[in-house]
């Protein structure tokens, strides 16, 4: 890559290489900010009813129209990212942490521990992930927290296997062998040599998993396993909007559209990260 001293043209070069990825990241950050600042951004109270103004089609007052109780759909969409996005972030970060511990333990220590851990991960992966998540929610009970646990749990094997596969190659790198022969302790080698070198693929995987988590969280809220009915939430709004397909099709339209835009922006961001951090995969597109 050409090196520019001028920052302005460096951004220009980045933009030409990663235009859609940067656009995706910008959109995703905007959605995150709007969601966090919902109370300042939303034009109305998402729970405020106005029965006289029910089923209103999109207009200047209600940009996305109103639902069966006359609540403003735009305001509900703005608040509606909170349950799904907080659940998805928490789930992915927890799965990443747990998966890294399991993967490093298995890959670095090896032996029967490695075999046992990886067979366990195989059993978890042999379930369709949505079914595993539903079974976990059924065991723990309904609610957003349990949906978060379920999604996180079902993603642990993905991270564990990835981390293990990287660790077993890093263990034989010359700089690791050199560190060991100089008398470095295992925690030191893991912390200073193994962890930093496995960050790029893990970040790429985490962004892909974030897109999956947002989709799964909205699906679980859609079938009623997560938030309470009536909560402003993208998945729940689509579920409740399905009853209005004859009277007010705009009610399920907008929350679903915003889920699509969110997941799409995360996917583009992930593709860009992969191209930037892992040039080997650049043309592979899987």
């Amino acid at each position: 890559m050409r090196v520019d001293k001028n920052t302005g043209s460096r951004i220009g070069v980045l933009w030409r290489r990663y235009d859609i990825a940067l656009l995706g990241s910008a959109v995703f950050i905007a959605i995150l900010l709007i969601t966090i600042l919902a109370s300042a951004v939303a034009p109305y109270d998402p729970m405020a009813r106005d029965i006289k103004n029910r089923f209103a089609t999109p207009s200047a007052e209600n940009a996305f129209g109103t639902d069966q109780l006359g609540r403003d759909v735009l305001s509900r969409v703005i608040y509606g990212g909170r349950p799904i996005l907080s659940a998805s972030f928490t789930a992915v970060i927890s799965a990443l942490a747990a998966g890294t511990i399991i993967g490093v333990a298995g890959g670095y220590l090896g032996g029967w521990l490695d075999t046992a851990l990886m067979r366990l991960m195989d059993v978890m992966l042999s379930f369709p992930s949505i079914l595993l998540a539903i079974l976990i929610v059924a065991t723990l009970g309904l609610g957003l927290l349990n949906v978060t646990v379920a999604i996180g749990f079902s993603m642990v094997p993905v991270f564990a296997r990835l981390v293990r596969s990287i660790v077993i190659t890093l263990v034989y790198e010359e700089y690791v062998i050199a560190a060991r022969s100089l008398g470095a302790s295992d925690p030191h080698i893991i912390w200073k040599h193994i962890l930093p070198n496995m960050m790029p693929p893990i970040i790429v995987q985490a962004s892909a998993m974030l897109a999956v988590a947002i989709g799964t969280a909205s699906a679980l809220n859609f079938i009623g396993l997560g938030v309470e009915p009536g909560t402003p939430d993208w998945g729940m709004m689509v579920a409740e909007g399905q009853r209005l397909i004859f009277d007010a099709p705009h009610v399920p339209l907008f929350p679903g559209l915003i889920i699509t835009i969110t997941v799409l922006s995360v996917n583009y961001m992930g593709d860009g990260l992969r191209d930037h951090l892992d040039p080997k995969l650049r043309h592979q597109d899987i």
Partner: peptide
């Protein structure tokens, strides 16, 4: 093709179903 496929895997299943019902059934 690349844009359509990344869009396809970003679409929530349940929402696509409901949109198809609104279009083709309703």
């Amino acid at each position: 093709v690349r844009t359509a496929s990344i869009l396809g895997l970003s679409l929530p299943l349940f929402w696509v179903g409901i949109m198809l019902i609104i279009l083709f059934s309703v």
